[in-house]
Design a binder for these strands. Structure first.
Length: 579
DNA sequence: TCAGTTCGCGCG
DNA sequence: AAAGCGCGCGAACTGA
C-alpha cells in the first residue's frame, strides 16, 4: 500500500484529474476527539483503486487543495465509510459537503449479522471476519492533535485502504443474502441522520428550569404523603453507623413491599399490574403519584441540562441507526424517543426564532403493515376504504354498530388491536384493560373478546396459526431485512418483529427520500421517533415543506406495500406539543 | 467497592 | 401450553 502525504509529499493539484474521475473511493477521517463540536478534524484519508492512498493533513493543507477536497466530496460517486455518520458530521461541520452514494461497512455488517456472523462490527472485527486480515488497533486511540508519527499516518491510510476490499466482500455477501434493497435504504438515510444530529433540537431553557422546580416540589409533596403511611420507622444502617430515619426509601421495591404489607396490602411485586388490584387504596394512589413525578423529575428533567450543548445551545441526541434488532433506530443522550407526551414536556422543544416545526407521523402504520403481511381481507378493506379500524374493531367485539361506538370503546379497541395482533393472550388482555383503562373484565370476557376478534380477522388468525404450527427460525421484513430467532424466541416475537421492522424500513425510505429534497435548502430534520418525523424550517416555506414531507412519507411504502395505503398526519407547529 | 443485572416506566 | 414487542435510563440490588 503506497501513500502520499499532503501537503508534505505534494499537492492535490497534481492528482486533481485522477481524483475527480474516481467512481469509487473509500474515505476515513481522524479527529482529535469524538465530539464534533469540541474536537477538530485532523486527517482525511482517501483510498481509490488506481492510486496511492492520500493522507491529507487538514491542519496544514493549502487553500487550493481544500477547494479540491470540496469538489471530491461533492462527486456523485460511491463513497465507502466505516460508520459514515461520524465522518459526515465532522466533514459537514468543517464545511465539506458530501454527496454521492454511500456504502457503510458498519451498517452492512449489522445487516449481515447472523448466528454465525461477527457480533461486533468495528473495523478490526469486520476485517478479520470478511477478509481474514488482522488490523492493528494500537494506533486507534492515539492523539491526533500534535505532530503525527509515521506509524499514525500509515495506520490512518490502512483504515481507508482496507475499506475498498471490505466493501467487495460485503457487497457480495449482501447480494447472496438478498439484502441489497435494505442496504440501499439504510445507506440512503445516513445523510439524514448525520444532519439531524448535527442540527439538534432547541429547548426553551427557561421553561425547563421552571418546570423542573415545579415537579421537584411535587415529588417532595408526594413523598410526604407516602411518609404518612409509614407505621414502623425504619432504622437504616449506613457506612458511618446506625442512623434513625424518619422515612423509608420509596424508590426501593423491597422497602415499598414491606410498607404495603404493613398497610395490609399483600402482593408479590410492586409493578403496575400488581398495584392495579388495589387501585383505589390511598397508599397505592400516593405511590403511583410519587413514582410518576419522580420518574419525570429523575429521568427527564434533572438530567436534561447536561445534554444541552454549550456551543449550540441545542440538544444533539445520538441515534443508533440499527439500534433495535427489529431494524428500528434507538436514541440516547438523551433518548428523544421517550420524551413524555405531557404537554409541558413537549412544549419545551421549540424551533429557532422565525422558524417552525413540521410534525408528521404515520397513522397506524404497524397495523396497516400487519394487515398486508397477514393478508387479512377485512383489515385491508377497512384501510382501502379509509375506515377507522379501531372503531371497526370496537364494533366487532361489542357487537354494536359503528355509529354507536363511544370514544372510550374506540380507545380500548386500540389496545386490543395492537395487543391481539402481536400475540397477547386473554390474561394479558384482561390485565391491560385493567391497568390502562381501569376497566375490569373477567378472564372469560377477555377470552370472549379474543374469540370474537379472531372470528372477524381471519387473515390474522391464519397468520398466527401458521406461527403456532410452524415456529420459524428466521424471518424477513418487507424489504428483505433478516431476522434470526433464538430457541427462546416466542410466538409474540414472530408476530411482532417483521411488522415493527417493516415499519422501520418504510420510515427509513422516507428519511432518505426526504433528505434528497431538503438537502440544498435550509430545512432540517430535528427528530425521528419511530413513526414520526419532525423538521424545522423558515415559517415562509412551511406550507410547501409540509406538502413535501407528507408526499414523501405517504409514498415511501409504494414499492413494498401493494394492498394498504399509508397516511401521514401532519401539522405545522410552534412547539412539539402542538400535535 | 464496583461492574453487571434487574426492575419499573417513559415512548413508539 | 401460553405468550404483545422494541428500546434507554435511573435506582436499587447482587455477587465476588
Amino acid at each position: 500500500m503506497e501513500t502520499i502525504l499532503i501537503p508534505s509529499q505534494g499537492s492535490l493539484t497534481n492528482y486533481r484529474d485522477l481524483l475527480l474521475t474516481q467512481d469509487v473511493m473509500a474515505i476515513d477521517t481522524e479527529t482529535t476527539g469524538l465530539d464534533v463540536f469540541t474536537s477538530q478534524l485532523r486527517l482525511l484519508q482517501i483510498a481509490t483503486y488506481n492510486s496511492p492512498v492520500f493522507v491529507i493533513d487538514l491542519f496544514k493543507v493549502s487553500i487550493e487543495d481544500q477547494q479540491i477536497i470540496k469538489k471530491i466530496m461533492k462527486l456523485n460517486n460511491t463513497k465507502i465509510f466505516q460508520n459514515a455518520k461520524f465522518d459526515l458530521k465532522f466533514l459537514y461541520h468543517n464545511g465539506y459537503t458530501v454527496e454521492g452514494i454511500l456504502f457503510d461497512t458498519m451498517i452492512a455488517g449489522q445487516l449481515l449479522r447472523s448466528n454465525s456472523g461477527p457480533y461486533r462490527v468495528n473495523l478490526a472485527e469486520l476485517s478479520k471476519f470478511y477478509l481474514g486480515k488482522e488490523l492493528n488497533k494500537e494506533e486507534q486511540k492515539s492523539d491526533f492533535s500534535g505532530e503525527l508519527t509515521n506509524s499514525q499516518l500509515q495506520y490512518a491510510a490502512k483504515d481507508a485502504h482496507i475499506l475498498l476490499e471490505l466493501r467487495e466482500a460485503m457487497q457480495s455477501d449482501l447480494r447472496k443474502a438478498k439484502l441489497e434493497k435494505i442496504a440501499a435504504i439504510e445507506f440512503s438515510c445516513i445523510y439524514a441522520i448525520a444532519d439531524m444530529e448535527l442540527t439538534g433540537m432547541k429547548i426553551d431553557e427557561q421553561l425547563l428550569s421552571a418546570y423542573t422546580l415545579q415537579i421537584k416540589k411535587q415529588v417532595q409533596q408526594y413523598h410526604e404523603t407516602l411518609d404518612s403511611f409509614v407505621i414502623n420507622k425504619v432504622v437504616q444502617q449506613t457506612f458511618f453507623g446506625i442512623e434513625q430515619s424518619h422515612s423509608i426509601n420509596f424508590n426501593s421495591q423491597k422497602q415499598i413491599l414491606t410498607l404495603l404489607n404493613e398497610n395490609d396490602i399483600f402482593i408479590d411485586d410492586t409493578s403496575q399490574a400488581s398495584l392495579a388490584s388495589y387501585a383505589n387504596h390511598p397508599l397505592i394512589i400516593a405511590l403511583k403519584n410519587y413514582r410518576k413525578a419522580y420518574k419525570l423529575y429523575g429521568s427527564f428533567l434533572q438530567p436534561l441540562p447536561k445534554d444541552i450543548n454549550n456551543l449550540t445551545g441545542r440538544i444533539h441526541a445520538s441515534y443508533s441507526q440499527i439500534g433495535a434488532s427489529s431494524g428500528r433506530m434507538s436514541c440516547r443522550k438523551p433518548n428523544m424517543q421517550q420524551v413524555p407526551r405531557d404537554k409541558k414536556f413537549r412544549e419545551m422543544f421549540v424551533p429557532d426564532k422565525g422558524n417552525c416545526f413540521i410534525i408528521a407521523d404515520y397513522s397506524q402504520v404497524e397495523l396497516r403493515i400487519a394487515a398486508e403481511i397477514a393478508n387479512d381481507p377485512r383489515m385491508i378493506k377497512a384501510y382501502k376504504d379509509n375506515k377507522d379500524l379501531h372503531k371497526l374493531t370496537a364494533s366487532l367485539i361489542t357487537n354494536s354498530p359503528i355509529s354507536e361506538i363511544t370514544k372510550e370503546q374506540r380507545q380500548s379497541a386500540k389496545a386490543v388491536n395492537f395487543g391481539l395482533i402481536f400475540g397477547m393472550g386473554s390474561r394479558g388482555l384482561m390485565n391491560y384493560s385493567k391497568d390502562t383503562y381501569g376497566i375490569n373484565i373477567t378472564l372469560e370476557q377477555a377470552d370472549q373478546f379474543r374469540n370474537e376478534y379472531f372470528k372477524a380477522y381471519t387473515g390474522i388468525k391464519k397468520w398466527h396459526n401458521n406461527f403456532k404450527s410452524n415456529p420459524p427460525t428466521s424471518a424477513k421484513s418487507i424489504t428483505g431485512r433478516r431476522y434470526f430467532y433464538r430457541d427462546t424466541t416466542g410466538f409474540s416475537s414472530f408476530c411482532n418483529t417483521p411488522v415493527q421492522g417493516s415499519a422501520a424500513d418504510i420510515l427509513k425510505i422516507a428519511l432518505g427520500n426526504l433528505y434528497k429534497k431538503i438537502k440544498d435548502s435550509n430545512v432540517h430534520i430535528v427528530a425521528v421517533i419511530h413513526d414520526e418525523i419532525i423538521i424545522e424550517c423558515k415559517e415562509e416555506i412551511a406550507k410547501q415543506t409540509k406538502k413535501t414531507l407528507q408526499n414523501v412519507m405517504e409514498n415511501a411504502g409504494i414499492s413494498f406495500l401493494s394492498n394498504v395505503p399509508l397516511v401521514a398526519d401532519i401539522e405545522i407547529a410552534s412547539n412539539w406539543a402542538e400535535k
